[in-house]
Every structure is written in structure tokens, then in C-alpha cells.
Design a binder for these strands. Structure first.
Length: 410
RNA sequence: CGGGGCGUCGUAUACCGGUAGUACGCAUGGUUUGGGACCAUGUAGAUUGGGUUCGAUUCCCAACGCCCCGACCA
């Protein structure tokens, strides 16, 4: 992609937002704030989010099938589970005269989808032969946070992967639940958060009376506090006993995922039973599993940056290579840069080609701010070769485009 | 949901009860080209609704919006 074709305007203004991720993502043209806690993912940011969500998708496919549920739902579903009082719930109604005159029942703009998936599955009347199974989706969730903050870490509208599993027994649910933990850790490893992400016990909140488990990434700007020990055993502060607090290490952390053993809470509310082998009807056990994909994007920036900008892990970077020709009016250099661009594209490498007629400082500054893993420069100094620099390193290396392609595609 | 702050070009800001200024950005032309260079010209602004006043962007009230602290929360 050519820089000039991407809707991208970076800024070198020194304005600071309330968090590092908001500051760098806005300055770098990844996101734009539409209102408090609501952001547009601009082309560059959308690419990062897609990289993250594709990793999530690949891992989730091991334990469930992807689907897509609606954003709107009838209020009646929430009345059935007694969650109309969920205080972050958004309601919507038609604004035309006819709707207002009829005093239509409001729709719920879904904050989560237990109320949706349970009746859908129920309608299909799966028997014990069909269980267990899991289904998931990746979509935008809406929660009316009274105080959105910290950029992508807490919004009123955010991206989330939610998975729901259904089981004949508590044991089956627990087995699947353990499997989900492994799959989740695969996701966090692949996006670059493996070293600092812990599974901790937490309260079930609005969903369940039992413990749930949270995936917490140690992060200075995180809103949570966790306690972990050397064996990797962890607790959220909200449920940690005094004994844990005194013997474990405390860290600030951000919750990037969670899993809830719901048991029969929702299936009972919808009177959902399955037919067992012996002909008896028994309640279905259910669990739900979330990963905040947009929050992961924010956490990555919080953890991986320096004074010049973002440092994306290779797996989620919007592009692999930032290519800049320092050509000015020199057509030879520009043609060389064009040639390198084509060669990289042909080799299947995601490259952002800074084809603007701006000063070298502008290009270097953006390369650092945008945090793309490799910087490639073509100039009169490079004599037909290319200059290659890792975002994480100071020094650069001169090599041929072919050598570089070989190195990156390996 | 409690407490507080602030609303001026796209952004950041200044002044003012009587013609709203500057910088960045953006546009055009020109000089530059290895760490965000420069010159010239141009572009664009008082959140909304009431009130006070001869006159309100300025003072008062309200709404709305944004931001900050706390509580809550994926």
C-alpha cells in the first residue's frame, strides 16, 4: 500500500491523552475518537485489529465454530434472565413518528450474547448426541460505561470475541473449560503477550456466583490488581484473601480475556433442557468465554513502545515493512524505490510504501511512530542496495532487496 | 453513579462587553532533502437555547459535549 493512498495523517503534536495507547494510536492515525469511549478504526488501525482477530479466529476454530449474532435484540430476552437492570445496558428505539407514537418496546443493543445464543441453540433441540459443542463470534459490543477511559482499554463500544459452550454435565463443561484456557494462552502468546499474561481467579460478577477466570496482562495502566506467585497461580485482588495478598506478588494488570462457568444459570432461565440417552430431560450446562480484541490492541501499545512511538509485535503489525525512498527530485532513486516496492509486493510481503514528497525526517519519524517491524530505505547512499533496520534496533544493514526478501519470508 | 474542570478555525492556544489574533495543519508557488527544514500567498473559528445589555464570543442560567478524580465494570 502506498502511504498516499491510505487515509493516514500522523501528527507530531505533543498533546497527551489519558493513556499511552490513546496518545500513540491517535498520533499515528490508527484510530480517531468519535466521542467518549467510542473510536473509529482508521485503515491502519483496522489492519492491526484484523491481525489480532484473525489470530483469535484461528485458535478458536480448534474448539468452536464461528457464527455471527445480531447487534440488536428484543428486550423480552433480557427480561427472561432478569438482566434488564444490568446497568451498562443500552436501549434503542425507532425515532420516526410512527414508532414514537406506538411507544414501541425498546431494543437492547447487545453488551454480550448469552441471551441470544441460548434460545438459538434451544430452538435446534440438540440431544445428548450433539453435545458438547462451542460456537463463537467476533463483533462489536456495547456497554454504557459511565466513565470510559484509557483509550482502547475501556470504551462504550468495543470489539470482543465471545464463545459459548454447551454440555451434558458439569464434568464435560469443566473439561472443555480447561481446554479453553490452553487455547486462550495460545492466543496471548501469538499476539506477543504470553510472557506477562496470567490466569487468575476472579468473581463471577453479573454472570455467575462461582469463581470465573480472568486472563490478566501485567500492564502499568491496567485497571486491575492481581496477585501471582512463582508457580503462576494468580488471584484478582477483588477475591484474594488476606493470606494470598501477603505471600503473592502484586501487579497492576489489564483483563484481556475471561471465562465463565455459567452452569445452568441461563439454560434454566430459558427452560432449556436436552434429551438424555435414557430419555430423561436434563438441564444443559453452559460456559462463556470472552477476549477483548480491541483491548488487546491497546494493551500491546501500552507494553510495546518507546519515546519515538509504537513497537508492534511482528504478528500484529499493520505492515511488515515500511519502505521509504529518500529521492526528492531524483528520479533514479524514486524508480529504485518503486522497484523495491514491487519486488516486496511480489514476494507477498505487506509493505507500506512512503511515497510522499516529504523530508527524510518526516519519513523516519513516521516509521518509528507507526511501529512497523522493518524499515527499508532507498537513497543515493545505498547505491542500488537497500538499507534495512529493525524497529527495535539502532543500527541498520545494507543488503540487496533479494537478500532482504529471503530473510523476511523465512 | 458521586465530585470537579473546560467548551474560540481541523489541532493547540491568545485577547476582548464594540473589526477575533497567532502557531501547526491544509491549499498554491518556490527553495530544500539522512531525523519531523524554510519563504511567500491563501484557507478556515466563538457548542446550542434562553436571559441581561444600545450591542454578548465575552456576563448570568440551562441543555449538550469533552476531560479529570472516585465508585463500578469485558
Amino acid at each position: 500500500m502506498r502511504y498516499s493512498q491510505l487515509l493516514l495523517k500522523t501528527t507530531k503534536e505533543s498533546k497527551q491523552f489519558d493513556s499511552i495507547n490513546a496518545t500513540l494510536l491517535i498520533k499515528g492515525g490508527f484510530i480517531d475518537q468519535t466521542m467518549a469511549g467510542v473510536y473509529t478504526f482508521l485503515p491502519l488501525g483496522w489492519r492491526v485489529l484484523n491481525k489480532i482477530e484473525n489470530i483469535v479466529r484461528e485458535e478458536m476454530d480448534a474448539i468452536g465454530a464461528e457464527m455471527l449474532m445480531p447487534t440488536l435484540s428484543p428486550r423480552s430476552l433480557w427480561e427472561q434472565t432478569n438482566r434488564t437492570g444490568f446497568d451498562v445496558l443500552f436501549e434503542a428505539r425507532g425515532a420516526n413518528k410512527a414508532s414514537l407514537a406506538k411507544n414501541d418496546t425498546a431494543f437492547i443493543i447487545n453488551p454480550t450474547h448469552e441471551e441470544l445464543i441460548t434460545p438459538i441453540v434451544q430452538k435446534m433441540k440438540p440431544s445428548y448426541k450433539d453435545l458438547p459443542f462451542g460456537v463463537y463470534q467476533i463483533q462489536t459490543k456495547f456497554r454504557n460505561e459511565e466513565r470510559p477511559k484509557s483509550g482502547l482499554l475501556r470504551g462504550r463500544e468495543f470489539r470482543m470475541k465471545d464463545l459459548y459452550s454447551f454440555h451434558v454435565s458439569l464434568e464435560s463443561m469443566q473439561e472443555y473449560y480447561e481446554k479453553a484456557k490452553e487455547v486462550y494462552m495460545n492466543v496471548f502468546r501469538r499476539v506477543g503477550l504470553g510472557d506477562d499474561t496470567y490466569i487468575v481467579r476472579a468473581s463471577g460478577g453479573d454472570f455467575t456466583k462461582d469463581f470465573s477466570h480472568e486472563f490478566q496482562t501485567v500492564c502499568e495502566s491496567g485497571e486491575d490488581t492481581i496477585y501471582v506467585n512463582d508457580e503462576g497461580d494468580g488471584w484478582n485482588k477483588e477475591v484474594a484473601t488476606e493470606e494470598v495478598q501477603s505471600s503473592y506478588t502484586q501487579h497492576p494488570a489489564s483483563e484481556v480475556g475471561n471465562i465463565f462457568p455459567l452452569g445452568t444459570k441461563f439454560t434454566k432461565a430459558f427452560n432449556y433442557h436436552f434429551r438424555h440417552e435414557d430419555g430423561q430431560e436434563k438441564p444443559v450446562y453452559m460456559a462463556s468465554y470472552g477476549i477483548g480484541t480491541s483491548r488487546i490492541m491497546g494493551v500491546l501499545v501500552e507494553k510495546f513502545h518507546d519515546e519515538r512511538g509504537i513497537i508492534w509485535p511482528d504478528s500484529v503489525a499493520p505492515y511488515t515493512v515500511y519502505l521509504a525512498g529518500l529521492n526528492g527530485d531524483d528520479e533514479t532513486i524514486r524508480n529504485q524505490a518503486d522497484g523495491v516496492y514491487k519486488a516486496l509486493q511480489k514476494a507477498g510481503i505487506d509493505v507500506l510504501y512512503d511515497d510522499r514528497n516529504v523530508s527524510p525526517g518526516d519519513k523516519f519519524g513516521d516509521a518509528d511512530l507507526l511501529g512497523i517491524p522493518w524499515r527499508v530505505v532507498v537513497s543515493k547512499k545505498t547505491g542500488g542496495q537497500i538499507e534495512v533496520k529493525r524497529r527495535t534496533e539502532q543500527d541498520n544493514t545494507l543488503m540487496s532487496a533479494e537478500e532482504f526478501i529471503k530473510q523476511v519470508t523465512n
